[in-house]
Structure formats: C-alpha cells, structure tokens
C-alpha cells in the first residue's frame, strides 16, 4: 500500500483561507488527507454541481465530528440518483434511500433504533433536495422537528426539481423561469412571491439548532455541521447549492453565483438556537440583485422588458427586506 498523496492547498482568496498557513488543528475538514470522502469521486453529478459539493463537505464534517459513527437517510432526488447508479455507490457512509417524501421520518426510525439498541454513539443525518424537503417531504420534516427527534436534516436547496428536468418547487425564487413556469405570457417565470422560508418555519418549532449555509462559504458550512452534530435533538441545516444546469449559469460560476446570492441579501446566512437567531453572516460587499440575476439565464427574461425591470425591482425589495430583517449590514451602512 502506498501512503496517501500529500494534498496541498493554496491561498485562493479571502474567503478560502489557505489551509497550509493554518495550524493543523484549525484547518478545514476537507484539507485533512484522512478525511472520509463520504461522497466519493466517480459519481454522476453534472459539472459544477453545487449539491455534490455541499453534500461532500457536510458529510465529511459530520463524519469527523462523530468519529465516523454516522448513518444517513437520503430522499429521492439528484443527490440519490447521481450517487447510486446500480451497482455502484459513491457513498462511504452507511446510507439508505427509501422514498422522496420520507427522509426525515426514516431518520427518526433510525435514531429510535439506535436508541433502543443502546447505540447512543451512532448519529443520524437525513438529507434531501428542496423538493424532498420543503414540498413533498414537509410533513415528515415538521413531524420530526415537533417531536425533537435526534436527527440532523440537511436540505440542499437548488431551488427547483432538477432531477426531473427543472420544474418549479416552492423554493423556486420569484420570477425564475423553470420548465413549469416558462418565460412566456403576461407574467413570465415564477410567481412574484416571498417564497416559503423553511429555516424560519424550522425555528418556529423551537428546535435546538437551525442554520442556513452556502457553498460560497464552505468553512462556514463545515463549522455549522460540526456544531449541529455536537447537539442532540432535531436540527436543521439549509444549504444553498447552485445548479448550473437548472439556473443557466456557467459551470465555473457555482461558487460565484452562490456568493452573490448571499452578498445581495437574497439568501441570508444565519443560525438560530431554540427559535432565536444567534448569529448571522454579515454582508461584506453589498451588491444589487442584478449582479446575481444576470449570471443566470433563468432570470434573463426579466431584463428584456420594462415589466421585467419592475420585477427586478420587486426582487431587490425582497433582498432589502431580508437585509433589514436579519440585520445583514451594519447599521448606518449605505444601502
């Protein structure tokens, strides 16, 4: 056997601090050559897939936090399909896929089994995409929260049903074009709604831990997973994961797009304990929503007409409201 190849990391910008400059103890999980590679290479995700990236970081962080004592329930969706084309599997964790709508309940069952068997060291993660979480899996998710079952649920939110060909979910943002909200007619794209904020709904269950994260800040994601795994009871982590195919953005822009979502205020990054917000990731350099929207063809129709422009203004208002509501820029900072 050869020893693992040494992995070198370099400083790539202020958001991804070069790990080689840090003490080993504070380096990222992903920089550890002994990391678990929970979602291993060879899977069939598209180029630039935010979900594959998010899942890999999240599960590796969880595996380190719980010493590898982890079982995972996965909802049907892209993540399940691209990772397990029979007879291959990219999972290097104990992993079960049951159905689209029941990952949270399957997680509950696993946690109950481990408890009754006295295997309290084994921890449970349930995970799925936005469709499996905020739409069809919502009842099971809320039930798991309400009973405060010992499960961390991770939603990888790419804002539509990507596995079936980019149809609208209730996480699809205002104005976005999908296969079922085409950019035609008098009101092209998705309805101009405020969406369904499942992190806030999770908080309304007063569960021990709720957080949002983004693949734009993978260290923050790792930290939140680590924190979540050190708490018992129902926990919820909502991760923003761009989908180049569905969003119509460049496959090399996944991180950039995710960052602009946060920096524009459209995707607030925060954490909460027992229903109260305890932390927020402040916007460093506020950008107008245009910068985020223009990178994605799902919003391109908005920039072609006067009515579209008015819709962009509405989307800007959503971002402004988020910024005010979550306090994402320091008081007195220019709008």
């Amino acid at each position: 056997m050869t020893s693992p190849l040494p992995i070198k990391f370099y400083q790539t910008g202020t958001f991804t601090v070069g790990n080689r400059l840090l003490d080993v103890s504070v380096r990222s999980v992903q920089s550890d050559s002994q990391r678990n590679n929970s979602l291993n290479s060879g899977h069939r995700a598209c180029q630039g897939c935010g979900e594959a990236l998010g899942a890999r970081y999240a599960l590796d962080a969880a595996m380190r936090a719980v010493n590898g004592r982890l079982v995972v329930a996965n909802a049907t969706g892209c993540l399940e399909v691209f990772s397990t084309p029979y007879p291959e599997s990219s999972w290097r964790v104990a992993w079960l896929h049951s159905l689209f709508a029941n990952a949270a309940a399957v997680g509950t069952g696993m946690a109950a089994a481990m408890k009754v068997k006295g295997r309290t060291d084994v921890r449970v993660i349930a995970q799925g995409g936005d469709g499996g979480t905020v739409d069809i899996g919502f009842a099971c998710l809320s039930g798991m929260f309400e009973r405060n079952d010992d499960v961390l649920y991770i939603c990888y939110d790419n804002e539509a049903y990507m596995n079936t060909g980019v149809q609208r979910s209730s996480a699809t943002p205002a104005g976005a074009r999908t296969a079922t909200t085409p950019a035609v007619g008098e009101a092209p794209g998705n309805v101009m709604n405020q969406g369904k904020n499942v992190p806030l709904i999770a908080m309304a269950h007063f569960i021990p831990y709720v957080a949002t994260a983004s693949v734009a800040d993978l260290r923050d994601l790792e930290t939140k997973v680590d924190k979540a795994m050190r708490v018992h009871g129902a926990r919820y982590l909502h991760v923003h994961v761009p989908c180049p195919l569905g969003w119509g953005c460049d496959t090399g822009d996944t991180i950039k797009v995710a960052r602009l979502a946060a920096e524009s205020g459209l995707y607030p990054i925060f954490e909460a304990e027992y229903g109260e917000i305890t932390g927020r990731r402040m916007i460093r350099k506020r950008v107008p929503v245009d910068e985020y929207l223009k990178l994605q063809s799902r919003f391109s129709h908005l920039f072609k007409t006067t009515e579209g422009r008015a819709r962009v203004a509405q989307i800007q208002a959503i971002a402004d409201r988020n910024i005010a509501r979550f306090g994402l820029v320091p008081e007195g900072a220019p709008a």
């Binding site: 049951s98 309940a105 399957v106 509950t108 069952g109 068997k117 009842a139 809320s142 039930g143 309400e146």
Partner: peptide, 20 residues
C-alpha cells in the same frame, strides 16, 4: 413514536427496521 401520518408511520418503521 407518535407520528404525524400513516406515511410517516411506515417510514419510521422502515428506518427502524433498516437500522436493525
């Protein structure tokens, strides 16, 4: 476990049974 639906009842049973 007092679940929120029959769908959850069978799903919890699936998770529990699969975990041994």
């Amino acid at each position: 476990i007092n679940v929120e639906s029959e769908f959850a009842a069978m799903s919890v049973a699936i998770g529990a049974s699969a975990a041994g």
